[in-house]
Computed example of a mutant assay.
Amino acid sequence: MNDTTSRLSGPVRVVGTGLLGASVGLALRARGVDVLLADASPAHLSLAADYGAGRADDGSAEPALIVVAVPPDLVGTVVRAELAAHPDAVVTDVASVKVAPLAELEAAGVDLSRYVGSHPLAGRERGGPSAGRADLFLGRPWVVCARPENDRSSVSLVEALILDLGATPIEMQTAEHDAAVALVSHTPQIVSSLMAKRLAGSTDAALALAGQGVRDVTRIAGSEPELWVQILGANAPAVVDILRAYRDDLDRMLIALGDIDVAGSRRTIAEELAGGNLGVSRLPGKHGQDKRYASIVVMVDDEPGELARLLTELGEIAVNLEDLRLEHSPGAQVGLAEIAVLPEVLQRTIDDLTARGWRIAG
């Protein structure tokens, strides 16, 4: 199968044309799939169609697969309606919580043999049809919450969608999924937002000192509050458990910092920070590998084409770029490019870049 051939054979109906729905449509259209769009907002529907995410569903074609991409509090209602309206179609959704919608559908006595809940771990700080991207899901994990009552053919159809979008399907149970995203997505959103809230009352002089650390911690704080109220409300018990443990960690730090000269205070601080080292070391790296990389910080002049030249020359010296982070302070004439490489090529990379005139920071 080439890169532009779809694994799907019939029309795909996408209900909800926000960021995720529009991105699904754009990616499928790039593979030649007939995408039927539906949205409660005519303006969103028209805009998504104008961007090329599909065509308004006029009822002339029956979908083989339906992707429900609506806010979390509407998932149960919309999935139920789609199952009833399209008795031969498989229905999935992309909501970031799975237990609550499933419980709602089960309580309503709905036949769920054709419903396979799923969730792509992908997104952007912006929302709406205009934020959609055909490459949004490339290389991202996409959880499939298959259940015993699902036919294997239904699950396979959802997995075909995921593979078409360039994502990696991962099967998990609904409760396992919600506990996992509480840790890696929902709680970090709260922590990021509360830290960013501290910045609101700060002085311009203090904010002018902001470097990559505070930008990394607060990057996701610009997310839409209304959507997150729904997400957090649907997964509140799992998030509360993590926040309570986090609060205990903060309390230990507060006590230690409150009287730094008391015996054991510095050890407590060191152990809490070391716990963070251990946690971050467990995060999988490129291609899901648990592999640590070495970092080089290269000074890049703030001129057109300089970053592109750095990347080109890394290729010329046969160094594979594992990761890249950029930092640029306001008013500075130079930026910092932190590149991650395999440890075994660290010194060679430094030597070759230095020989080509690049300045290495630190």
Rank of each mutant, 00 (worst) to 15 (best):
M1I: 12
D3K: 14
T4Q: 14
S9E: 14
G16H: 03
L28Y: 04
R29Q: 12
V33T: 04
V35E: 00
L37Y: 03
D39G: 10
S41H: 04
P42S: 12
A43G: 11
A43Y: 11
G52Q: 00
G54K: 03
R55A: 15
A56Y: 04
A56H: 11
D57Q: 09
T77E: 09
V79I: 03
L83H: 03
P87Q: 13
V91I: 03
P101H: 08
E106M: 08
V110Q: 14
L112E: 00
S113R: 10
P120F: 06
G123F: 01
R124P: 05
E125S: 14
S130M: 10
R147V: 02
E149K: 08
N150I: 02
S153I: 03
S153D: 13
D164I: 00
A167S: 07
I170W: 04
H177R: 15
A180M: 13
P188S: 08
S193G: 12
S193D: 06
R198V: 10
R198M: 12
A208I: 04
G213I: 02
R219L: 06
W228E: 01
Q230L: 08
Q230E: 11
G233W: 00
P237L: 07
A238E: 11
A245T: 07
R247K: 10
L250C: 10
M253R: 10
M253L: 15
L254F: 10
I255D: 15
G258Q: 06
G258T: 00
D261P: 09
S265C: 08
T268Q: 09
G276L: 14
L278S: 15
G279S: 05
A294K: 06
V297M: 11
V300W: 02
E303T: 03
T312V: 05
N320E: 11
N320C: 12
E327I: 10
V334K: 08
G335R: 10
L336A: 15
D352R: 07
T354Q: 14
